[in-house]
Protein backbone atom coordinates (compact mmCIF):
# COMPACT_ATOMS: atom_id res chain seq x y z
CA UNK A 1 0.00 0.00 0.00
CA UNK A 2 1.26 3.46 -0.77
CA UNK A 3 1.17 6.01 1.93
CA UNK A 4 -0.82 9.18 1.60
CA UNK A 5 1.63 11.90 0.70
CA UNK A 6 0.93 15.54 1.37
CA UNK A 7 0.89 17.80 -1.66
CA UNK A 8 3.49 20.02 -0.07
CA UNK A 9 5.93 17.18 0.33
CA UNK A 10 5.30 16.05 -3.21
CA UNK A 11 5.98 19.56 -4.49
CA UNK A 12 9.30 19.74 -2.64
CA UNK A 13 10.35 16.33 -3.98
CA UNK A 14 9.34 17.40 -7.47
CA UNK A 15 11.45 20.54 -7.30
CA UNK A 16 14.49 18.67 -5.96
CA UNK A 17 14.24 15.81 -8.44
CA UNK A 18 13.79 18.09 -11.44
CA UNK A 19 16.69 20.32 -10.38
CA UNK A 20 19.04 17.38 -10.05
CA UNK A 21 17.74 15.68 -13.18
CA UNK A 22 18.23 18.80 -15.27
CA UNK A 23 21.70 19.35 -13.79
CA UNK A 24 22.76 15.84 -14.73
CA UNK A 25 21.29 16.20 -18.20
CA UNK A 26 22.69 19.70 -18.72
CA UNK A 27 25.96 18.76 -20.48
CA UNK A 28 23.95 16.87 -23.11
CA UNK A 29 21.43 19.69 -23.47
CA UNK A 30 24.25 22.21 -23.74
CA UNK A 31 25.93 20.17 -26.48
CA UNK A 32 22.70 19.96 -28.46
CA UNK A 33 22.06 23.69 -28.12
CA UNK A 34 25.64 24.63 -29.02
CA UNK A 35 25.43 22.56 -32.17
CA UNK A 36 22.91 25.07 -33.53
CA UNK A 37 25.06 28.13 -32.81
CA UNK A 38 27.66 29.79 -34.99
CA UNK A 39 31.26 29.33 -33.84
CA UNK A 40 31.36 32.94 -32.64
CA UNK A 41 28.21 32.52 -30.56
CA UNK A 42 29.45 29.19 -29.20
CA UNK A 43 32.34 30.84 -27.37
CA UNK A 44 30.56 34.15 -26.70
CA UNK A 45 30.68 35.48 -23.19
CA UNK A 46 28.16 35.56 -21.64
CA UNK A 47 26.87 32.40 -23.32
CA UNK A 48 23.21 32.42 -24.27
CA UNK A 49 20.91 29.50 -23.63
CA UNK A 50 18.21 30.08 -26.26
CA UNK A 51 18.52 33.65 -27.44
CA UNK A 52 20.76 33.31 -30.46
CA UNK A 53 20.51 32.86 -34.20
CA UNK A 54 19.78 29.15 -34.77
CA UNK A 55 21.65 27.59 -37.68
CA UNK A 56 22.25 24.19 -39.20
CA UNK A 57 25.56 25.15 -40.80
CA UNK A 58 27.67 23.06 -38.40
CA UNK A 59 25.96 19.87 -39.44
CA UNK A 60 26.76 20.55 -43.09
CA UNK A 61 30.30 21.66 -42.25
CA UNK A 62 31.04 18.48 -40.29
CA UNK A 63 29.82 16.33 -43.16
CA UNK A 64 31.77 18.25 -45.79
CA UNK A 65 35.06 18.39 -43.94
CA UNK A 66 35.33 14.79 -42.89
CA UNK A 67 32.66 12.74 -44.61
CA UNK A 68 30.80 12.24 -41.39
CA UNK A 69 28.33 9.74 -42.73
CA UNK A 70 31.01 7.23 -43.62
CA UNK A 71 31.92 7.03 -39.93
CA UNK A 72 28.27 6.96 -38.97
CA UNK A 73 27.76 4.07 -41.37
CA UNK A 74 30.83 2.32 -39.91
CA UNK A 75 29.22 2.57 -36.48
CA UNK A 76 25.97 1.14 -37.79
CA UNK A 77 27.67 -1.76 -39.55
CA UNK A 78 29.98 -2.59 -36.65
CA UNK A 79 27.41 -2.38 -33.86
CA UNK A 80 24.58 -4.07 -35.74
CA UNK A 81 26.86 -6.61 -37.41
CA UNK A 82 28.54 -7.71 -34.20
CA UNK A 83 25.21 -7.94 -32.40
CA UNK A 84 23.51 -10.01 -35.10
CA UNK A 85 26.50 -12.33 -35.40
CA UNK A 86 26.57 -12.63 -31.62
CA UNK A 87 22.85 -13.46 -31.55
CA UNK A 88 23.29 -16.11 -34.22
CA UNK A 89 25.92 -17.85 -32.10
CA UNK A 90 24.26 -17.21 -28.74
CA UNK A 91 20.63 -18.12 -29.44
CA UNK A 92 21.27 -21.87 -29.89
CA UNK A 93 23.64 -21.91 -26.91
CA UNK A 94 21.27 -20.07 -24.57
CA UNK A 95 18.32 -22.10 -25.87
CA UNK A 96 19.95 -25.42 -25.11
CA UNK A 97 21.16 -24.29 -21.69
CA UNK A 98 17.70 -23.04 -20.74
CA UNK A 99 15.71 -26.04 -22.01
CA UNK A 100 18.13 -28.96 -21.76
CA UNK A 101 20.16 -28.05 -18.68
CA UNK A 102 22.88 -30.44 -17.60
CA UNK A 103 25.00 -30.62 -14.50
CA UNK A 104 27.60 -28.46 -16.15
CA UNK A 105 25.28 -25.71 -17.41
CA UNK A 106 25.97 -23.47 -14.45
CA UNK A 107 29.73 -23.90 -14.80
CA UNK A 108 29.59 -23.09 -18.50
CA UNK A 109 27.59 -19.95 -17.83
CA UNK A 110 29.95 -18.82 -15.11
CA UNK A 111 32.95 -19.54 -17.24
CA UNK A 112 31.53 -17.50 -20.12
CA UNK A 113 30.99 -14.63 -17.76
CA UNK A 114 34.57 -14.89 -16.53
CA UNK A 115 35.86 -14.22 -20.03
CA UNK A 116 34.10 -10.87 -19.81
CA UNK A 117 36.15 -10.03 -16.74
CA UNK A 118 39.37 -10.22 -18.70
CA UNK A 119 40.74 -6.66 -19.00
CA UNK A 120 41.03 -5.85 -22.72
CA UNK A 121 44.47 -4.39 -22.26
CA UNK A 122 45.70 -7.86 -21.26
CA UNK A 123 45.13 -9.13 -24.79
CA UNK A 124 45.65 -5.87 -26.68
CA UNK A 125 49.10 -6.74 -27.99
CA UNK A 126 48.40 -10.20 -29.42
CA UNK A 127 45.17 -9.02 -31.04
CA UNK A 128 46.90 -5.97 -32.46
CA UNK A 129 49.76 -8.05 -33.89
CA UNK A 130 47.42 -10.70 -35.27
CA UNK A 131 45.32 -8.00 -36.94
CA UNK A 132 48.43 -6.36 -38.35
CA UNK A 133 49.70 -9.62 -39.80
CA UNK A 134 46.36 -10.64 -41.32
CA UNK A 135 45.50 -7.23 -42.72
CA UNK A 136 42.49 -6.85 -40.43
CA UNK A 137 43.67 -3.57 -38.90
CA UNK A 138 41.34 -0.73 -39.77
CA UNK A 139 38.70 -2.96 -41.31
CA UNK A 140 35.07 -3.22 -40.32
CA UNK A 141 35.07 -6.98 -40.44
CA UNK A 142 37.93 -7.10 -37.91
CA UNK A 143 36.01 -4.94 -35.46
CA UNK A 144 32.82 -6.91 -35.98
CA UNK A 145 34.70 -10.07 -34.97
CA UNK A 146 36.29 -8.53 -31.87
CA UNK A 147 33.08 -6.88 -30.66
CA UNK A 148 31.12 -10.08 -31.22
CA UNK A 149 33.51 -11.96 -28.97
CA UNK A 150 33.58 -9.14 -26.41
CA UNK A 151 29.80 -9.06 -26.07
CA UNK A 152 29.04 -12.74 -26.60
CA UNK A 153 29.01 -13.55 -22.86
CA UNK A 154 26.51 -10.75 -22.17
CA UNK A 155 24.32 -11.85 -25.07
CA UNK A 156 24.28 -15.49 -23.92
CA UNK A 157 23.51 -14.45 -20.36
CA UNK A 158 20.69 -12.10 -21.24
CA UNK A 159 19.09 -14.61 -23.58
CA UNK A 160 19.47 -17.33 -20.98
CA UNK A 161 17.60 -15.31 -18.35
CA UNK A 162 14.80 -14.59 -20.83
CA UNK A 163 14.52 -18.16 -22.17
CA UNK A 164 14.52 -19.48 -18.61
CA UNK A 165 11.19 -17.72 -18.09
CA UNK A 166 9.49 -19.59 -20.94
CA UNK A 167 7.60 -22.46 -19.33
CA UNK A 168 8.90 -25.81 -20.58
CA UNK A 169 5.45 -27.41 -20.16
CA UNK A 170 4.15 -25.50 -23.16
CA UNK A 171 6.76 -27.16 -25.33
CA UNK A 172 5.85 -30.58 -24.01
CA UNK A 173 2.17 -29.91 -24.58
CA UNK A 174 2.76 -28.90 -28.17
CA UNK A 175 4.85 -32.04 -28.68
CA UNK A 176 2.00 -34.15 -27.28
CA UNK A 177 -0.33 -32.52 -29.76
CA UNK A 178 1.92 -33.77 -32.49
CA UNK A 179 3.88 -30.67 -33.38
CA UNK A 180 7.06 -31.32 -35.32
CA UNK A 181 10.30 -29.80 -34.14
CA UNK A 182 10.07 -27.26 -36.92
CA UNK A 183 6.58 -26.09 -36.11
CA UNK A 184 7.41 -26.21 -32.42
CA UNK A 185 10.22 -23.72 -32.93
CA UNK A 186 8.32 -21.63 -35.46
CA UNK A 187 4.90 -21.32 -33.83
CA UNK A 188 5.44 -21.95 -30.13
CA UNK A 189 8.91 -20.93 -29.16
CA UNK A 190 9.65 -17.99 -31.45
CA UNK A 191 6.67 -15.81 -30.47
CA UNK A 192 7.58 -16.26 -26.81
CA UNK A 193 11.29 -15.67 -27.32
CA UNK A 194 11.07 -12.61 -29.56
CA UNK A 195 10.68 -9.95 -26.82
CA UNK A 196 13.75 -11.24 -24.98
CA UNK A 197 15.78 -11.41 -28.18
CA UNK A 198 14.68 -7.88 -29.10
CA UNK A 199 15.80 -6.41 -25.79
CA UNK A 200 19.09 -8.28 -25.98
CA UNK A 201 19.62 -6.88 -29.44
CA UNK A 202 18.85 -3.36 -28.28
CA UNK A 203 21.19 -3.37 -25.31
CA UNK A 204 24.04 -4.90 -27.26
CA UNK A 205 23.75 -2.46 -30.13
CA UNK A 206 24.10 0.28 -27.52
CA UNK A 207 27.13 -1.35 -25.90
CA UNK A 208 28.82 -1.95 -29.25
CA UNK A 209 28.04 1.54 -30.51
CA UNK A 210 29.76 3.08 -27.49
CA UNK A 211 32.67 0.64 -27.22
CA UNK A 212 35.79 2.78 -27.10
CA UNK A 213 38.80 0.61 -26.40
CA UNK A 214 39.03 -1.68 -29.39
CA UNK A 215 37.53 0.81 -31.81
CA UNK A 216 40.20 3.36 -30.86
CA UNK A 217 43.10 0.92 -30.98
CA UNK A 218 42.24 -1.11 -34.07
CA UNK A 219 41.04 1.53 -36.52
CA UNK A 220 42.53 4.49 -38.32
CA UNK A 221 40.87 6.62 -40.99
CA UNK A 222 39.06 3.98 -43.03
CA UNK A 223 36.98 1.86 -40.70
CA UNK A 224 36.78 4.28 -37.77
CA UNK A 225 33.34 4.34 -36.19
CA UNK A 226 32.04 7.46 -34.46
CA UNK A 227 33.86 6.79 -31.17
CA UNK A 228 37.19 6.98 -32.97
CA UNK A 229 36.10 9.77 -35.30
CA UNK A 230 35.06 11.99 -32.40
CA UNK A 231 38.37 11.26 -30.67
CA UNK A 232 40.10 12.95 -33.62
CA UNK A 233 38.48 16.18 -32.41
CA UNK A 234 40.59 16.06 -29.28
CA UNK A 235 42.88 18.77 -30.63
CA UNK A 236 42.87 21.38 -31.97
CA UNK A 237 39.56 20.93 -33.78
CA UNK A 238 37.80 20.43 -30.47
CA UNK A 239 38.06 24.15 -29.91
CA UNK A 240 35.49 24.66 -32.66
CA UNK A 241 32.72 24.10 -30.13
CA UNK A 242 29.82 24.33 -32.52
CA UNK A 243 31.23 21.72 -34.90
CA UNK A 244 32.30 19.46 -32.06
CA UNK A 245 28.76 19.74 -30.71
CA UNK A 246 27.16 18.95 -34.04
CA UNK A 247 29.34 15.87 -34.54
CA UNK A 248 28.66 14.77 -30.96
CA UNK A 249 24.92 15.32 -31.18
CA UNK A 250 24.63 13.15 -34.26
CA UNK A 251 26.79 10.49 -32.62
CA UNK A 252 24.72 10.20 -29.44
CA UNK A 253 21.21 10.94 -30.70
CA UNK A 254 20.40 7.46 -32.08
CA UNK A 255 21.61 5.79 -28.90
CA UNK A 256 19.78 8.18 -26.59
CA UNK A 257 16.58 7.23 -28.40
CA UNK A 258 17.31 3.49 -28.29
CA UNK A 259 18.27 3.95 -24.65
CA UNK A 260 14.82 5.22 -23.76
CA UNK A 261 13.36 1.98 -25.01
CA UNK A 262 15.89 -0.22 -23.27
CA UNK A 263 16.03 1.35 -19.81
CA UNK A 264 14.00 -1.49 -18.29
CA UNK A 265 16.34 -4.13 -19.71
CA UNK A 266 19.43 -2.25 -18.66
CA UNK A 267 19.45 -3.44 -15.08
CA UNK A 268 18.89 -7.02 -16.02
CA UNK A 269 21.43 -7.03 -18.82
CA UNK A 270 24.24 -5.35 -16.98
CA UNK A 271 23.96 -7.11 -13.64
CA UNK A 272 23.63 -10.61 -15.13
CA UNK A 273 20.46 -11.15 -13.18
CA UNK A 274 22.10 -10.37 -9.84
CA UNK A 275 19.66 -7.53 -9.16
CA UNK A 276 15.98 -7.94 -9.89
Amino acid sequence: MSRAVSTRRKAITTAAAWTIGLAIFFPILWTIITSFKTEAEAIASPPSLFNFHWTLENYFAVQERSNYFRHFWNSVVISLGSTLLGLAIAIPAAWSMAFVPTKRTKDVLMWMLSTKMLPPVGVLIPIYLMFRDTGLLDTRIGLVVVLTLINLPIIVWMLFTYFKEIPGEILEASRMDGATLRSEILYVLTPMAVPGIASTLLLNVILAWNEAFWTLNLTAAKAAPLTAFIASYSSPEGLFYAKLSAASTMAIAPILILGWFSQKQLVRGLTFGAVK
Binding site: I20, G21, L22, I24, F25, P27, I28, T31, I206, W209, N210, A212, L216, L226, T227, A228, I230, A231, S248, A251, I252, I255, L256, L258, G259, Q263, L266
Partner: peptide
Protein backbone atom coordinates in the same frame (compact mmCIF):
# COMPACT_ATOMS: atom_id res chain seq x y z
CA UNK B 1 17.12 12.75 -17.85
CA UNK B 2 19.11 11.01 -15.13
CA UNK B 3 19.86 7.88 -17.16
CA UNK B 4 20.89 9.76 -20.32
CA UNK B 5 24.63 10.22 -19.57
CA UNK B 6 25.06 6.45 -19.55
CA UNK B 7 24.24 6.32 -23.24
CA UNK B 8 26.76 8.96 -24.28
CA UNK B 9 29.84 7.42 -25.85
CA UNK B 10 33.01 7.90 -23.74
CA UNK B 11 34.87 9.97 -26.31
CA UNK B 12 31.97 12.41 -26.65
Amino acid sequence: LVIAPFFVMPTV
